[in-house]
Design a protein around this nucleic acid. Structure first.
Length: 710
RNA sequence: GGCGCGGUAGCUCAGUUGGUUAGAGCGCAGGAUUCAUAAUCCUGAGGUCGGGGGUUCGGGUCCCCCCCACGCUACCA
């Protein structure tokens, strides 16, 4: 594969239904931003694309709940996203939105093209339908009792209480959120993309990089967990996926297609095509042609996403692109894993998160400090963790003590000794090497060390190893500190001023190199440094490439005689009270949210309804774990007059040997049901707490078995 | 239960195709130093590389079994 002519880089489109937290940032936005800023600094042709994902049922439901329009919600979050990204320095070339007409047209064109080519399979299935509202109900429009945790407000696709993934037909007592009525099952027809038909080429493409006999990517360059998850799906066999849904808020299925009425494009045919429509808008705004970026084989397409999006970007979207024809496939999908927060999973609903828009407000001027910590702890290959204490430590120990201090030392000394003018030097002078205290080095040899340091940053960014690249950046600064330490200008200025000139000139060169090399990671710091050095602001147009070329030729970056400005602190120490306040804030928000949520009391029943239940006291006399099931125990219950076999989903909370002799209450007249091949004759009553933990409901100790409970 | 990514120093993590005494940063202990935001630099202590077996002249690295964490998935009357 040749060096690409141009790059098209995307970050996952955030869903316009809630603010951005640090997990989003560490997952898909900072990584992309580092990559594109680097490419620009190397003089590459690169376009960085993103936008808000603004369709879907979750938004309409929320709008209904809050009594506002979906448009108001998406406008609110789209504006917030744009502002947040700008303030934390995510340098999109185009941040677009899927509600724009150009996006509707683009995704409809895609659909039309696939339809005309006969790629779709039409399938008729039964879906819930609200007769009073006269419409099919999206998963999110159906609420019912979760079959797993009995939460009464579970959605048709997911229970937000226990987190399990559901299908609408799983819900007990489903009801429509539109009318509150019980929905009926009715047939509906949708267009499916037959992924099963594409399985063979998708597998070859993922595993070898070859499509249609042409090598398009190097699988070794893909991350393990990305390849692993793709293979896992491929091995499991791909199923046709619906590309349309019965939704009210989204992109219409092109109306000339028979049966299109009331149908919208599903997220697969909507959100990722947002990358393309966003590119079109960028091209229109800048007098460019969007097509080479999506259709020319010499373009490298890179998707930055979180691990929850791997299958989507590595299998489904490529399938759509190839089915449409004329489109290139991604050369890499460097998905990150997840970032935890203070030992727990980040959770929007539980309000366990650091919100980026709050951070940029509360820590204005400290954007790079967050970026630095996020990159240092980026979940590149496994889940990682953000802690406020860690944030404080990286800030104080690395940004202040290492980087900021080195730069300050150079600026202070240069101003003190030479009035801020970069000293002219005699290149024949030898100084102490920055590499080892006992060795000597020439000016040019030290420029070479700097060159190698920059190369090291560069190589790691190319490999999508941003943590390593950041470490390499900090090594440049560390070597700078060593150079000063081994040469001790403050001592030798009086005795060996010519040596000191060489050292300080080098110091300025290193700081100047850092002002360019730090930019992908710390763009705000880069700007400040350029001002301090009195050097032109960075436009991200080949500046890194330019200094690499100079250094490779052993040429200085900053000429002798250049006047630098005064130093100022780039980073400031963060005190304990700031950190303590943030931790307290986190705990408080979480506690406020965790206020025990009581389930709503169900509809009133009559005594007759109750008396239909036959509850009996009993005792567990045998228990064993069910094979091939994580949650199930097979229990034998003594009812006095008979023994029952009961399969119960309590294995996560109780070991079989611990519950022999446990007295229980059994629903004795529940219709038997087979679970994993074993007939369960009844149900044991369990109490559940707010954490979802289970406890037995039992009669007093040594109660007689087999008697009724009422 | 199935599949997948991981399990390396007190903490956060590097360790390429198997090859000499397993590394970095932070923290800790000593020392040097003062240009610098009590910053910097040097030295040191600290690891049966999750456990067990195997292949090999040689295994953190390859193979098998097991344990733990996370994710996806099935099961939850």
């Amino acid at each position: 594969m040749n060096e690409p002519k141009r790059y098209l880089v995307t970050s996952a489109l955030p869903y316009a239904n809630g603010p951005l937290h640090i997990g989003h940032l560490a997952g898909a936005y900072l990584s992309a931003d580092i990559f594109v800023r680097y490419l620009r600094l190397m003089g590459k042709d690169v376009v960085y694309i993103g936008g808000s994902d603004e369709h879907g049922a979750a938004i309409t439901i929320r709008a209904k709940k809050e009594g506002i329009t979906p448009r108001e919600i998406i406008d609110k979050y789209h504006t917030l996203f744009e502002d947040t990204f700008r303030r934390i320095g995510i340098s999109y070339d185009k941040y677009h939105r899927t509600s724009e007409p150009i996006h509707h047209e683009t995704s409809q064109e895609f659909f039309r093209k696939l339809y005309d080519k006969g790629e779709f399979v039409e399938q008729t299935t039964e879906q819930y339908f609200d007769e009073s509202a006269k419409q099919f109900l999206a998963d999110r429009y159906i609420i019912g009792t979760c079959p797993k945790c009995n939460h009464t407000e579970a959605y048709g696709d997911q229970c937000e209480n226990c987190g399990s993934t559901l299908s609408p037909t799983d819900l007990i007592e489903p009801r429509s959120t539109l009318s509150g009525n019980k929905p009926v099952l009715k047939t509906t027809t949708h267009w499916y993309l037959p992924l099963d038909k594409y399985e063979a080429w998708l597998r070859e493409w993922v595993e070898t990089g070859v499509v249609d006999g042409e090598k398009q990517h190097e699988p070794n360059a893909w991350k393990n967990h990305v390849l692993g998850q793709c293979k896992s799906w491929l091995d499991g066999g791909l199923q046709p996926r619906a590309m349309t849904r019965d939704l009210s808020w989204g992109v219409d299925v092109p109306q000339e297609i028979p049966g299109a009425e009331g149908k919208k494009l599903y997220v697969w045919m909507d959100a990722p095509i947002g990358y393309i429509s966003s590119t079109k808008q960028w091209a229109a705004d800048n007098g460019k042609d969007w097509k080479p970026y999506w259709q020319d084989k010499d373009t490298a397409l890179v998707h930055f996403i979180g691990k929850d999006n791997i299958v989507f970007h590595c299998l489904i979207f490529p399938a759509i692109l190839k089915a449409a024809g004329d489109y290139i496939l991604p050369v890499n999908v460097p998905a990150n894993q997840f970032m935890n927060l203070e030992g727990r999973k980040i959770s929007t609903s539980k309000n366990w998160a650091v919100w980026v828009h709050e951070y940029v407000q509360e820590f204005e001027g400290r954007e790079d400090e967050l970026r630095y910590n996020m990159i240092k702890n980026m979940p590149e290959n496994r889940d990682s963790e953000f802690t406020w204490k860690g944030y404080q430590e990286t800030n104080n120990n690395e940004l202040v003590n290492n980087l900021g201090n080195f730069i300050n030392r150079v600026l202070v000394l240069t101003n003190k000794y030479y009035g801020g003018v970069v000293p002219a030097i005699d290149q024949r002078q030898r100084i102490n090497s920055s590499l080892a205290p006992e060795e000597s080095a020439s000016y040019k040899e030290e420029l070479r060390v700097l060159y190698e340091g920059l190369r090291n940053v560069s190589v790691n960014i190319k490999k999508y190893e941003f943590r390593a690249a950041l470490t390499a950046l900090m090594e440049i600064s560390s070597k700078g500190n060593q150079l000063l330490q081994f040469n001790e200008p403050w001592k030798r200025q009086k005795t060996e001023p010519e040596d000191v000139k060489v050292v300080m000139n080098l110091g300025v060169q290193i700081v100047a190199a850092l002002s360019v090399a730090c930019r992908p990671f710390l763009p705000f710091t880069s700007d400040k440094l350029r001002t301090m050095l009195n050097l032109p602001a960075i436009e991200e147009q080949g500046e890194l490439q330019a200094i690499l070329e100079k250094l490779e030729q052993n040429e200085a970056i900053v000429p002798e005689g250049h006047q630098i400005g005064k130093g100022a602190y780039l980073f400031e120490r963060i005190k304990d009270d700031v950190i303590d306040a943030q931790i307290a804030k986190l705990e408080a928000a979480n506690a406020a949210n965790a206020g025990v949520e009581y389930e709503a009391v169900k509809d009133t029943i009559q005594f007759d309804d109750f008396s239909k239940l036959d509850l009996r006291t009993g005792k567990i006399i045998a228990a064993e774990k069910m094979k091939k099931a994580k949650k199930l125990l097979k229990l034998t219950v003594d009812l006095g007059f008979e023994e029952r076999t009961v399969v119960s989903g309590i294995a996560e909370f109780f070991k079989p040997e611990d519950i022999i002799g446990q007295e229980i209450v059994l629903v004795a007249n529940l219709a038997p049901r087979k679970l994993r091949g074993v007939e369960s004759q009844g149900m044991i009553l369990m109490a559940e707490n707010e954490k979802g933990e289970l406890g037995f409901v039992s009669p007093p100790k040594d109660w007689v078995t087999g008697f009724t409970v009422r």
